[in-house]
Amino acid sequence: MALIELRNLDKRFGTTHVVKSLNLDISDREFLVLLGPSGCGKTTTMRMVAGLEQPSSGEILFDGVRINDVPTQLRDVAMVFQNYGLYPHMNVFDNIAYPLKLQKYPMNERKELVDRAAARVGLQPFLTRMPRELSGGQRQRVALARAIVRNPVVFLMDEPLSNLDAKLRVTARAEIKNLSEELGVTTIYVTHDQVEAMTLAHRVAVMNDGVIQQLGRPEDIYNDPANAFVASFIGSPAMNLLPVQVIGDTVRYEEGPELSLRAPRQGRLTMGVRAEDMQLAEPGQGHLSASIYTFELLGDSTMVNLRLADRVFSIKAPKDLRLARGDSVHVRLPQDKLYWFDADSGERLRG
């Protein structure tokens, strides 16, 4: 297994600065997720660890040894990509065995290792099939089996579930989580899906514009976001962010009502509140009123989307609530569940 250290890692493509002085330690056996929107630098970071991209500057170390100049095939990493990368002219057995063939394992050892890897992901009945005869979920499991067949020191996974439908994604997430815990291999997992990050990771590094915005356990990032970007990216739905003006003891939402709330300072701020923390209230007992924009039945709950001025924000309500588009409702904002951010920098304000 491996401790991975990234030191002042920088990557430029021409004049485009993709990764900016990134510093990150990934512990032995840790499952770390790089999370962020398209173009944030997460895949480029993973490709530099794999050796598929060369850093413009900085160092990559495995167990304290600098590997910048070590070829990909000698880094002992296994990769699973979005498109699976299966060889269409090979059956499942040969696809899984291919890394062993390259390393000249004897055939009897290859068979033993392939059978073991296939058993871990439930592929034993499909070893003689061709990739075209498999479902998307089965192809994804072939890619996983090929990655684990030789027990590498590092797993690198780049959006491996994005081609699967919603039901298969849930199953595949469980398989990946189970494999990571069973094998105990240091793993870097790249995704833009915060649900995958929250369910899989020991720690999450939220990236934007080539910079790590926050690094921590999923529950810490959810409950204690460092800035407005992290707050808006983590959560389903995302945190409601409302621009407010604070003058004296008054908090005012744009041209709307004055709110009887305490803010950490005066001036232009962004007030954040999660959908599950907002409450529908009786008339006269809420902080503000708004009309229903859409009403969504989710099964275990109801999502009420409200329009206030030119913004839409969400409240997670009980599953038996029934309202109609255009209905007016009153909303309570719990003081102890509010988040405050600087309106310009987005940085979190405490107090």
Rank of each mutant, 00 (worst) to 15 (best):
L3N: 11
L3H: 06
L6N: 03
D10E: 12
G14F: 06
H17W: 00
D25A: 14
L34S: 05
S38W: 02
G39F: 01
K42H: 01
T45F: 03
R47E: 02
E53A: 07
L74K: 15
Q82S: 05
Q82M: 05
Y84F: 04
Y87G: 11
P88N: 10
D94Q: 11
I96S: 03
I96G: 02
A97G: 03
K101F: 06
K104L: 01
D115G: 13
F126W: 11
R129G: 10
L134I: 02
S135N: 06
G136P: 00
G137A: 07
G137V: 00
Q140E: 10
Q140N: 06
Q140G: 08
Q140T: 06
L144N: 01
L144S: 07
A147F: 00
I148G: 03
L156I: 06
D158F: 00
E159K: 01
E159S: 03
L161C: 13
L164M: 09
K167I: 12
V170A: 09
A172Y: 07
E175M: 10
K177H: 03
N178D: 15
V190K: 03
H192E: 09
A197Y: 00
L200P: 01
V204F: 01
V204R: 11
V204I: 14
Q214H: 01
L215Y: 13
G216Q: 07
N223V: 05
D224E: 11
P225Q: 04
F229G: 15
A231M: 08
S232V: 10
F233L: 13
L241K: 06
L242Q: 06
V244C: 08
D249S: 09
R265G: 06
T270P: 15
M271L: 04
G272R: 11
V273L: 03
D277S: 12
L280N: 13
L280K: 14
E282V: 12
G286M: 01
S291L: 09
I292R: 12
I292W: 03
E296K: 15
L298K: 08
M303F: 02
M303V: 09
V304D: 11
L306P: 14
L306D: 10
V312N: 10
S314P: 14
P318R: 03
K319T: 13
K319H: 08
L321E: 05
R322Y: 12
L323Y: 07
A324C: 15
Q335T: 05
D336M: 08
D336V: 02
L338Q: 07
D342I: 04
G351I: 03
